[in-house]
């Protein structure tokens, strides 16, 4: 029996889907059997980030409506044999699925996977309600911007209202140079405001753009700083104690600056 984790943010464009794809790949590379669920019905993207868009035959709505079996809709990743994707439907909308149906679907996935990662759509409407319905845990993604942190706060409130005990935070796209100049909120600023546990910090990284273009998650590249950050987050999600300072000091010049930030 595996566990299910929803990746959510409130605000769009902060890197939820990138985070889901990279964490999924990183967890699978560690040997876990991983299913990624794209809950963004009508605006699917996870398939493109994973480079699997040309393999989709059936989707989540087909499974829910009984047109196919769950096994038929799961797409095996082409690089990692224990990573699977359940794609969203593109030509339908969020009302095609109910929270109860999602709950049943995720429960079924948990029977054969160690980890089920659910990529939530932006917003707090039905798509979000669907995405969190079957989740045991929640990871909230934000960037160091006023609007993103504000929306993260709203989402954390909603998650707590739905009895997610300890949603955890990923701060994405932090730019060390700007932080040290005092032009970007640092990790402590954000944590002080949101008051939840940090599970990882991902630096802004051009590799992400390239990897999105290619449909290959950045964790597949050893040279990618963001990829390393995601591997560390994956380890923490599996209960390993990876110190944040380790993440920083392993990376040379840029990290010197980051360390100063963390050192506060």
């Amino acid at each position: 029996m595996g566990k299910s984790i929803v990746i959510t943010s409130g605000k769009g464009g902060v890197g939820k889907t990138t985070t889901t794809a990279n964490l999924g790949m990183a967890l699978a590379q560690r040997g876990a059997r991983v299913a990624l669920v794209d809950a963004d019905i009508g605006l699917r993207n996870l398939d493109v980030l994973l480079g699997l868009e040309n393999r989709i035959v059936y989707d989540l709505v087909d499974v829910v409506e009984g047109f196919c079996r769950l096994r038929q809709a799961l797409i095996r990743d082409k690089r990692c044999e224990n990573l699977f994707l359940l794609p969203a439907a593109q030509t339908r909308d969020k009302t095609a699925v109910s929270p109860d149906q999602m709950r049943a679907l995720v429960a079924e996935l948990k029977e054969s996977f160690d980890v089920v990662l659910i990529d939530s759509p932006a917003g707090i409407e039905q798509g979000f309600q669907n995405a969190v319905a079957g989740a045991d845990e929640a990871v909230v993604v934000t960037t160091p911007e006023v609007s993103a942190v504000r929306d993260a706060d709203r989402i954390i409130g909603l998650l707590e209202a739905q009895e997610f005990h300890a949603p955890r935070l990923v701060i994405n796209r932090i730019r060390p140079a700007m932080v040290s100049r005092g032009d970007m909120m640092d990790i402590n600023d954000i944590l002080e405001i949101l008051a939840i546990d940090l599970v990882g910090v991902v630096p802004e990284d051009e590799h992400i753009v390239v990897s999105t273009n290619r449909g290959e998650p950045a964790v597949l590249q050893n040279s990618s700083l963001a990829g390393r950050a995601y591997r560390n987050i994956a380890a923490r999600l599996m209960g390993e104690d990876v110190p944040f300072l380790d993440l920083q000091s392993a990376n040379g010049g840029l990290l010197g600056r980051l360390r100063r930030i963390f050192g506060g």
Binding site: V179, R181, G182, D183, M184, D189
Partner: peptide, 21 residues
């Protein structure tokens, strides 16, 4: 001003969040 815009961001965020919360 030399401290950069992050303090402005943090302050605005606090006010906004208090309203929200």
């Amino acid at each position: 001003r030399q401290a950069g815009s992050k303090d402005v961001a943090r302050e605005r965020l606090r006010v906004v969040l208090m309203h929200d919360r």
